[in-house]
Design a protein around this nucleic acid. Structure first.
Lengths: 219, 219
DNA sequence: AAATATAATTAGATTAGTCTAATTATTGTA
DNA sequence: TACAATAATTAGACTAATCTAATTATATTT
């Protein structure tokens, strides 16, 4: 079995590869892991020995197929436990991340699958992030940033790119929830402020920063 | 926060103190922890530094009030997760121990309490072991070993002292379940074999070893 | 009470994961 | 292309948890 630390590195590399391209730099990994660069070099050398990543001195690293499998498994765990915490225990979507960070390291494929079934095979976690299936297949979403929509275009709010409690709370307060239909009514030239129409009659104004952290599916 | 290792030591010491009296020996602890004696000495010295146990060279150790609190908290976690696994996910009572050993180390009192509520505040785990309440109060049971009953005495099957899958499976196969009323019909002088009447019309024969691993409440 | 057996501790080493300080690569710019 | 800036690695050290081998306490038996 892999240590929690290894699993956290794998997850971090996976996410960096997803957003920043194929090869991951020591420094970016050090930053997201909250450790100093030499720790990353050491760790990654050990992990290369276990064939979890490929490593070329000073050139960065990449997950192997095996490493990717483990990473996706942890992400599956994480997101299923988040659904459990929200749907079954009544947690709010901004409260579950740290708990799921612990629960994701429970080692049992069988438990994961039973949990999946218990939850009714959810497709996404409470933040709209897709849940990999039991074979590690992660449906790639066609969602786009709300900030890319033009005036009069509309979409369905399906996810966020900022998972901080601060942002999630803001959305709650603004009255925007996953599944809502949003239509861009206006975009202020000066500061890129968006005026949105949500649901039937509600209109709200959001900043570019917010529009750039919201994912929507276009019909 | 305490490490998983520390928590496992605390739990082991707690259980040893419960069954074998106040003071715990290095060797017994080494045995149940599956490590060698010097590891225990080292660990316990560190833990004494953190005021989790009291330690006197070559005299054994005892939990402090603080250590006891932590131990009971872990036991509470363990037993609640066992209920979850059996009641919600459909695991059998002989399958849950190892998973609960992992889940018990999730650090969140709030999660524990929400889980407790979700499960309907169960009083006992699937093996009949009592679940400490949120204040760490563990109701002490008045259950006795079935092997102490005399002929014609009866009681309710409320727990086991042997938690191994092998034993639990045996009970399943023999058709004895928690909650059953059992009455001692006969005790063979020669080898202390017990003949029991269970439920309405079923009679079964069990060995002394089995009778000595079953807990019953006498009405 | 002395001799022996058993239990516990100390000493010294190992591994995983981290650190700081020093060194070496790589990249970007003049 | 050479120099400076930035990034990555090596070297050496630390902590937690473990080990084996050697030593010291405690307990038991004659």
């Amino acid at each position: 079995m892999h240590s929690f630390t290894e699993e956290n590195y794998l997850k971090a590399i996976y996410k960096l590869q997803e957003t920043n391209g194929e090869v991951v730099a020591t420094s970016s990994l050090a930053q997201v892991m909250g450790v100093h660069a030499p720790s990353v070099t050491d760790m990654l050398k050990r992990m290369a020995g276990k064939k979890l990543v490929t490593y070329q001195k000073s050139k960065g690293f990449k997950l192997t197929e095996k490493g990717k499998q483990v990473a996706v498994g942890i992400i599956r765990n994480h997101r299923l436990w988040e659904v459990f915490l929200v749907d079954k225990l009544g947690y709010k979507w901004d409260e579950v991340h740290d708990l799921a960070e612990q629960l994701e390291h429970i080692h049992s494929e069988d438990l994961t699958n039973k949990l999946d079934k218990f939850l009714g095979f959810p497709k996404a976690d409470p933040h709209g992030d897709p849940i990999p299936d039991a074979n590690g297949v992660l449906p790639k979403s066609k969602a786009v940033l709300l900030s890319t929509l033009k005036i009069e275009e509309k979409g369905t709010f399906t996810g966020v790119t900022d998972h901080t409690p601060a942002f999630l709370n803001y959305l709650d307060k603004a009255g925007i929830s996953l599944g809502n239909t949003v239509k861009v009514k206006a975009i202020e030239e000066f500061d890129q402020t968006y005026t949105l129409q949500i649901k039937p009659e509600k209109e709200i104004v959001i900043s570019y920063k917010v529009a750039n952290s919201i994912l929507v599916n276009i019909a």
